[in-house]
Simulated assay, not measured.
Amino acid sequence: MRNRFRILSLATVVLAFCGTPLAAGIVVEWAELPDPSVQVFEDPYRDLSPEQFDDVVFALRLRSRLQGTGGTAQERQKWQVLLVETEDALATDDIDVDWLLSQREAVTERRKLAGASGNPLFDGRVVTLVGFAIPAPPDPDGHAVAYLVPKLGMCSHMPPPPPNQMIRVRLNDDWTPSYLHEQVQLTGTLTIAPSSRHMVVVDGLMPMRATFLLDADSIKTQDTVQGQTYNNKSLVDRLRAAAHRKTGGLTASD
């Protein structure tokens, strides 16, 4: 009897962790998708205050002007004075502009890696996510496709998210988004399969770089966003979604 109780308790804990029955997949939050092993790294630019960052940018612009041939002798003298004053002010805060410049490429690569690396914990797992679906041109084999993003407006009125915050979704035959940013709950097998496409969204041709691929088995639409009815399913949104479904839209290969 005691062993039976322990088994039931373990099942209760597992169900509570997943949030839904096991068949529905592990409930995953967007913040869990990046690879945690590459998220912590040295980034001296991140430690700058807004004022310090502005001073660094100003110093770089002044250096660029002085390296060129433009400007009168009086203007160039003024730029030199401003440069010395700006770099001296930064030096009082122990900020070395030359050292920051030497770190720029390394920091850029670290940021790219942090934004593109997917969490291997979920590779090949059946998961459930909630997000906003963007209709996309179908795959060459005719399979319906959408992109899932964590926030309303991404890739249209907002920039695209980092690749590990975008999921390319191969949909089943039962559903495709009827408008941009339709809120959905998707369940399926998630794999780390980086892809890069270009397609027309709202503001023109948009790069769609996704770290993950989700083969959706179950799709549930949700009519509310943060407790409010989501009714801005404009005619333009519907026509654009229909164009992707019927004509394939504009796309580029990997």
Results as ranks from 00 to 15, higher is better:
Arg6Ile: 09
Leu10His: 01
Thr12Trp: 04
Val13Ala: 12
Val13Phe: 00
Gly25Pro: 07
Val28Cys: 05
Pro36Asn: 04
Asp43Leu: 06
Ser49Thr: 14
Pro50Ile: 06
Gln52Met: 06
Asp54Ala: 15
Val57Met: 15
Arg61Val: 14
Gln67Val: 01
Gly70Cys: 04
Gly71Pro: 08
Ala73Asn: 06
Trp79Phe: 13
Val81Pro: 02
Val81Gln: 10
Glu85Arg: 04
Asp88Asn: 10
Ala91Lys: 01
Asp94Lys: 11
Ile95Asp: 01
Val97Phe: 07
Trp99Lys: 07
Arg104Gly: 10
Val107Arg: 00
Glu109Gly: 10
Lys112Met: 04
Leu113Ser: 02
Ala114Val: 07
Ala116Asp: 01
Ala116Lys: 00
Gly118Met: 08
Asp123Glu: 12
Arg125Cys: 08
Leu129Met: 15
Ile134Cys: 14
Ala136Asp: 15
Pro140Arg: 00
Asp141Tyr: 11
Asp141Gly: 11
Gly142Val: 08
Ala146Tyr: 13
Gly153His: 11
Cys155Asp: 10
Pro163Asn: 04
Gln165Ile: 00
Tyr179Ile: 02
Leu180Cys: 05
Ile192Tyr: 07
Ala193Gly: 14
Ala193His: 15
Ser195Val: 14
Val200Asn: 03
Gly204Asn: 08
Leu205Ala: 11
Thr221Val: 12
Asp223Ser: 13
Thr229Lys: 00
Tyr230Ile: 00
Val236Leu: 05
Asp237Ser: 13
Leu239Lys: 02
Leu239Gln: 08
Ala241Lys: 03
Ala243Gly: 14
Lys246Tyr: 01
Gly248Ile: 04
